[in-house]
Design a protein around this nucleic acid. Structure first.
Lengths: 224, 224
DNA sequence: CGCATAGTTAGTCCTTCATCGAAGCATTGA
DNA sequence: TCAATGCTTCGATGAAGGACTAACTATGCG
């Protein structure tokens, strides 16, 4: 028999379809109410409530009560990373699903992945940044290139961030099956996109819709 | 309702205690037979067999038949990474277990984690390498320092490996709750330790036992 | 061949847990 | 204070699946 952390407990929390759907929905980065999560998971409100209390007890979620609304969110980047890792294995191992990736075309193009951008646009961006050696890539490890600081400073992003999270990280894109950029830099770029209104969040979805102008601006900066 | 990879299916495979124990045992890096895994999981042979076929069907394991023995192993680094990620969350959210870490003292000192060294020795090694700036650490991101190439070349390890896996990666040590070194460099160092017979694998366990001479040699190279 | 070992399959029991309706609490607004 | 909304708790139901014994298949060894 084994000792150590109770990994079965955590995994079984994710192992229920309703809870998995909720967690996937929360990968959108914004906290959601119990009713919204019930809708996402496709279960009744009492059922959702029961699942949510289990996830809370397991330490996977945080709760912010505001009036009669209770906002549930992922407990942190570590939990998000775990979901990512599981999603990666599931995508690699289960291509039995005929439909390759999300049904919604907008989701395939660009969507939010916890706190950064994913989808074809994000994959193209990482490819281009690596090709221009702004970023240096070695499989899953991504480092800043010599020109990174000035390149990102030009658009108001300080890459010498003192955040405790890694600046760059590769995150496997399950729709395209290639990597995009995560980490604080990935998060900063998403912030930039939303702040400049290059793109907007599609309500109730993780999709990010670029405006024509925004798309042009984004491509000029990141895909040139 | 959500689309995308079936993460609940994968997570529920890990979510059973017996299967979780098996997977944890396989994190030792060596493939094990069905009987050995039954023993690890604390279940009868038929039960183990049933679990193993489920894990196979889920794509988490590979199988090598040799005569009447059937050796099961983890399907790859991606699966190992997922187990690591889950273990990390479990360790972070579940300190309810009074016993801090493995019961076995030897396991606490040094053990194998899939393909690299873990435990107090490994944590100390990473600390020292970072302090000497052989490696440069930024939270979970670890890069090679300027002196890394020559330092490791001196003991016969080529850090400019062309392997597709990252050279350095941080891996959370669940016994010490601090990080140690994973990635191809971590794997190469473990190889070195076993090749030079500085330490040997404890049979049927992940523990690595250093010889007095070996400990001295290891400390001279990595903890000086 | 015959016996032992390694492993899988079949059958059955039994626990666990996801689900929902109905009722109960809490907060907000009129 | 009354009604509406958001959410949780309770209790009953039912299905899923994990566990074991027993029987069966396959490999190895004398």
């Amino acid at each position: 028999m084994r000792e150590g952390p109770d990994i079965a407990r955590i995994a079984s929390l994710v192992g229920d379809p309703a809870r998995a759907n909720m967690l996937t929905a929360l990968m959108g980065g914004t906290a959601l109410t119990a009713s919204e999560l019930a809708l996402e998971a496709g279960v009744s409100l009492p059922t959702a409530s029961s699942h949510l209390s289990k996830l809370m007890e397991g330490g996977l979620l945080t709760l912010a009560s505001q009036g009669r609304h209770r906002y549930y969110g992922l407990a942190g980047p570590q939990v998000a990373g775990m979901i990512e890792a599981i999603t990666g294995v599931a995508a690699a191992v289960g291509p039995q699903r005929v439909r390759p990736g999300p049904r919604d075309a907008a989701m395939r193009v660009a969507r939010v992945c916890y706190d950064h951008l994913a989808g074809e646009q994000a994959v193209a961006m990482l490819d281009r940044l690596v090709a221009r050696q702004v970023l240096l890539r070695h499989d899953k490890e991504i480092r800043l290139g010599p020109s990174a600081a000035s390149h990102f400073a030009a658009i108001g992003i300080d890459v010498e961030s003192k955040a405790r999270r890694p600046v760059c990280r590769a995150c496997l894109d399950w729709s395209v099956r290639r990597s995009h950029l995560a980490g604080t830099l990935g998060a900063a770029i998403l912030d930039k996109i939303l702040l400049e209104k290059w793109g907007r969040r599609e309500k109730g979805s993780r999709a990010v819709i670029f405006s024509p102008m925004g798309k042009q601006a984004f491509e000029k900066v990141f895909l040139a």
